[in-house]
Design a binder for these strands. Structure first.
Lengths: 151, 151
DNA sequence: ACCACAATGTTAGGCTACCTAACTATGAGC
DNA sequence: GCTCATAGTTAGGTAGCCTAACATTGTGGT
């Protein structure tokens, strides 16, 4: 994000075009993701929280930021997940103010089941692509990851 | 989606792996998108609705499906957008039951301003990529679009 | 043509989630 | 050790989303 702060306000038109396309495609992909959200009784926020915690223990503030909600709202949902036995909360060893949210065994089992189901649905879509298309897609994913980690 | 209904329940492991990676990356990109949502007083749902209507007039039921909410909830938000002068509602000429939501001039102006701002922020991130990486990303976007339109 | 049924939105009422403000507790700097 | 910043939680109010019921228009059978 250092580059962002120091760059000129007028940006390269080509970059803006690609940004526009990227954002539009991302939005369409989210529509797809949302539309396959019907099954299961966990809310979008709760399932996203499980997904985050499945990768690594996270602070409440980080979870709230990723979800685009305020910290008290995140706390509320995390407590519900805790009461459901899906996550646990422990003080961060390196900073006793912070709370690390981790998946319980039960939570990981539940998340894996939900994840497997969605993977199958997406795999069915990927099956309709050609080999070259899948290769291009696979090559692009790390690049998108790179974008998301530059904050 | 025809292919989905007729395919075997056990899917190719490689496809499942790619599906998993795709969903994870998509989720991370959404976090980025959410985190740059602070500015502006429009809710996520309202802004998404504007984005949809900016592409083409859409039915209420379609908007609700894309947002992952029920039709009455979408109606409620659309009415608020209408009262703010951002969208207008008219019966679909081809089906008087349906309602088409379109952007007003004011709505388009507002949406373009918000969109431009976000494009600049994303462009700043894209600027950190190499030319080859941007090319790969650009090539992948139509493929992702293809995935999202196979429903 | 008519009748029953399906599809699309809207209205009404209740519940959940999210927000701001205030508070507690821990870490950081002078 | 005092002051201020940071991380979460609690409390209370507002807004968003849901289900159920209804009005209107399209569709299909007889």
């Amino acid at each position: 994000m250092l580059g962002y702060l120091t760059m000129s306000p007028t940006t390269d038109p080509q970059l803006l075009d690609l940004a526009q396309s990227f954002r539009t495609t991302l939005r369409h992909a989210v529509y797809l993701s949302r539309s396959m959200n019907g099954e299961g009784r966990l809310s979008v926020v709760q399932l996203s929280t499980l997904s985050m915690a499945a990768e690594e223990p996270l602070r409440v503030s980080r979870i709230a930021a990723n979800l685009g909600i305020r910290v008290p709202s995140a706390t509320e949902q995390i407590i519900k997940l805790e009461q459901a036995g899906l996550v646990s909360r422990h003080p961060d060893p390196t900073d006793s103010r912070a709370v690390l949210v981790t998946l319980t065994d039960h939570g990981r089992t539940e998340w894996e089941a939900a994840s497997r189901h969605r993977n199958e649905r997406v795999a069915a879509l990927l099956d309709q692509l050609g080999d070259d298309e899948r290769a291009t897609l696979a090559a692009a994913l790390p690049i998108i990851e790179k974008l998301t980690h530059t904050d």
